[in-house]
Every structure is written in structure tokens, then in C-alpha cells.
């Protein structure tokens, strides 16, 4: 019965070849450090789910952002859990992404033929940092406000166009409702879209070229 259904679907979807190409392909023996990339992917998915759940209640407006975050944390059943996962997941993302990068670096996996994979990986790291930076402001508490104030000020250091860039980043000269709205928009639309695109390329390359083997010392 189940087999018939699978066959029926395969005739139409061709999923077996995809399954075989992705999951049944042979990969070299690797050590536990090679799980860091997958763990990062897993975290990205988790962050996506918890993030979507948070947007159900979060309001990106200075008048209500703080209240809605407090509401999620203290009033909603399991709200503390969802937000806790998202909050700590953000830090874990950064740690795992950097760890993954270091693994790739020390084992020379960025070399031929995986240069593009590496470059997309570097961009993905920047995106992860961007997620952290934009997400940090959203609770609109003291820490968020002041961290973002000093964080955005760095942009203003750029010679010549620094002031202008700063105004673009903040949507004005000071942190305001505009800043919060654009940070929110960046956090939930621009960055996820970029992430998905680059992640698609990154994973396609990983599957196409294959996971790198642990290099031999005498090689």
C-alpha cells in the first residue's frame, strides 16, 4: 500500500532520484567537527520557526515594542520559551557559524573546488551577524536601544559619507520609530530572503561537490 503510494508519487515527482542524489550519496568518513555546518543549518531553521512565532505578537513600534515583548515573555503561555530559544539561538548561531568557518579553514576545505562555497559561507556569516544586530534592537529595552545607538554610530565613522550612511541606517539622525521599523523589516524580510538564497547556493554546492574529506597529514 505504502509502496504503491510511493511509486505513484515517484512517477509524478521523481523524488527517488532526488532522495538518492542527496541522501544516499556516498560521503567520505568524516569526524564530529563536520557536523557544525548541519548544526548551524538546524539552528537557522529553529530561529526561523521561533521567529515566525514571535512575529505573531511582536509590534515593531516604539510605543508597543517593549510592551509586546514583555507580554510575550510574561503573559503568553510558553512565550518565555519561544523567546528564550530565539534569544539564545541568536548567540548560538554566531558561535556555530564561526566554528564552522574555523573548521573549514583549518582543514583547508575552502580550497579547490569549493571556493564559491566558501565565499557564500562568508556572506552567510555576515548575514548572521546582520540578523543579530537588527534583532538586538527589537525588544526596545535599554540594552537594545543603547547597543544599537553605539553600534550604528560605527557607520558614521566612515570618512566623508559617514554621517549620511548613519542617517540611512537609522532612518534619521536619532534612533526612532523609523529605525525600529526598518530594523524589523530587515530582520524578518531582507535578511531571511538573502539567507535563503545564499543558503540554497551553499547547500547546492555542498551536495554537488560533496563534503570535503579529512585531509591527510602527509598529503
Amino acid at each position: 500500500m505504502a509502496a504503491n503510494l510511493m511509486n505513484w508519487l515517484d512517477e509524478r515527482l521523481g523524488w527517488r532520484s532526488v532522495w538518492e542524489a542527496i541522501f544516499l550519496r556516498k560521503v567520505p568518513h568524516v569526524n564530529w567537527f563536520y557536523t557544525l555546518g548541519s548544526a548551524t543549518l538546524f539552528l537557522a531553521v529553529t530561529q526561523g520557526i521561533t521567529g515566525i512565532l514571535l512575529t505573531l505578537y511582536y509590534v515593531p513600534d516604539p510605543a508597543h515594542a517593549y510592551d509586546s515583548v514583555v507580554y510575550i515573555t510574561t503573559q503568553l503561555p510558553m512565550g518565555w520559551f519561544i523567546r528564550g530559544l530565539h534569544h539564545w539561538g541568536a548567540s548560538a548561531m554566531v558561535i556555530l557559524t564561526v566554528a564552522h568557518l574555523l573548521r573549514v579553514f583549518f582543514l583547508g576545505a575552502y580550497k579547490y573546488p569549493r571556493e564559491i562555497t566558501w565565499i557564500t559561507g562568508v556572506f552567510l556569516l555576515l548575514i548572521v551577524i546582520g540578523f543579530g544586530f537588527t534583532g538586538y534592537l527589537l525588544p526596545w529595552d535599554q540594552k537594545a536601544y543603547w547597543a544599537t545607538t553605539v553600534g550604528t554610530r560605527i557607520i558614521g565613522v566612515a570618512p566623508g559619507i559617514g554621517e549620511w550612511l548613519l542617517r540611512v541606517a537609522r532612518g534619521g539622525s536619532e534612533l526612532s520609530a523609523v529605525t525600529l521599523a526598518r530594523f524589523f523589516g530587515t530582520h524578518v524580510w531582507i535578511l531571511p530572503a538573502s539567507l535563503l538564497t545564499l543558503l540554497g547556493v551553499h547547500l547546492y554546492l555542498v551536495i554537488r561537490i560533496g563534503i570535503s574529506a579529512v585531509p591527510e597529514k602527509d598529503e
Binding site: P77, M78, I82
Partner: peptide, 15 residues
């Protein structure tokens, strides 16, 4: 662990 807490999280305000 993610899905089960999401249920009360979603229906909480109605309760």
C-alpha cells in the same frame, strides 16, 4: 519540543 509549546503559545490569548 518546539511544536507542543507553540500550541498554547498560539491559543493563549483566547484562553
Amino acid at each position: 519540543a518546539i511544536g507542543l509549546p507553540a500550541i498554547p503559545y498560539l491559543i493563549g490569548p483566547a484562553q
